[in-house]
Design a protein around this nucleic acid. Structure first.
Length: 251
DNA sequence: CATGGGTGAAGTCGACGGGT
DNA sequence: ACCCGTCGACTTCACCCATG
């Protein structure tokens, strides 16, 4: 996908990127080889070539792409950094950054789910997160990530963040995580299907009183939230891709 | 319940390609 | 060498709403 993108070139937006695609320039290689193109002066093309060579140099540098790509198109990077992605969802004792605190941080790297629990291993989170280049959340830009920064002021987060909440909103799917899951036909294990965030708060307090089963349920709930993010991210990416309506169809 | 980032529309500006 | 139209970038602003 990335090597088919031209939106990061200067004075190229959606319209001119499409103009390139429509005259058969479907990848950087095509552009690098092109002599003349309608709507682009030779001077502009040679500028583009210089930039694309630099893009090849920095191909795996997320900071570079975050600077180059317009915010609105950062989603294109998702599969590009899939090998170094972490999915994240937290549980807290409430909504207020001041009054509440984190109880569980759930991470999934595509292979393994890990829970970090307050009073056990929560302080490991700042050591783990910087290992990844890309982080995917649902509503994380307003909730999970600010909360983490309050809890761990020094924390270094992965440079690239995709908030599925906003991506789905753009796709016309409004509503919370659970609602969107239902809409897309994703299922949860029976025993946690009816839980929500408030239930998670109650489970935490029961766990603190020594109810071991409550902690297990809380972690199962968090795990379902986190792992569903993988499917949701794939769907969001696919739909955003479809929306581009490229001349050649599938990625 | 507290919280605050993202969206999208509208408007403006200015760069640039291309036709004359 | 010039002008025009197109298009991208940027700013402003009201509005929205899911998170535990």
């Amino acid at each position: 996908m990335l090597y088919r993108s031209f939106i990061h070139l200067p004075r190229v937006g959606e319209a001119r990127e499409r103009a390139l695609w429509e005259q058969g320039v479907l990848s950087w290689a095509h552009l690098l080889a092109a002599r003349r193109l309608r709507g682009f002066s030779p001077e502009e093309l040679s500028l583009f070539r210089r930039i694309l060579l630099r893009c090849l140099d920095r191909f795996h540098d997320p900071h570079f792409w975050i600077r180059c790509l317009p915010r609105r198109h950062l989603w294109r990077l998702m599969p590009h950094f899939s090998g170094t992605t972490v999915y994240l969802d937290i549980e807290t004792t409430g909504l207020s950054f001041k009054e509440s605190h984190i109880t569980v941080v759930g991470l999934y790297d595509g292979q393994k789910y890990q829970a970090f629990v307050r009073g056990q291993n929560l302080e490991e989170v700042p050591k783990i997160l910087p290992r990844y280049q890309q982080i995917i959340t649902f509503g994380g830009s307003r909730f999970d990530l600010p909360f983490l920064k309050v809890c761990f002021p020094e924390i270094r987060l992965p440079p690239l963040h995709h908030d599925l909440y906003y991506l789905f909103r753009r796709l016309g799917l409004r509503g919370g995580l659970k609602r969107i899951e239902v809409e897309l036909g994703l299922v949860r294990p029976q025993e946690i299907a009816r839980l929500d965030g408030l239930a998670a708060v109650r489970l935490w307090f029961r766990a603190r009183l020594g109810d071991q089963k409550a902690l297990e349920t809380l972690l199962a709930y968090n795990q379902a939230d986190v792992i569903n993010l993988v499917t949701l991210a794939q769907i969001a990416w696919q739909r955003l891709w479809d929306q581009l309506d490229t001349p050649w169809g599938q990625p």
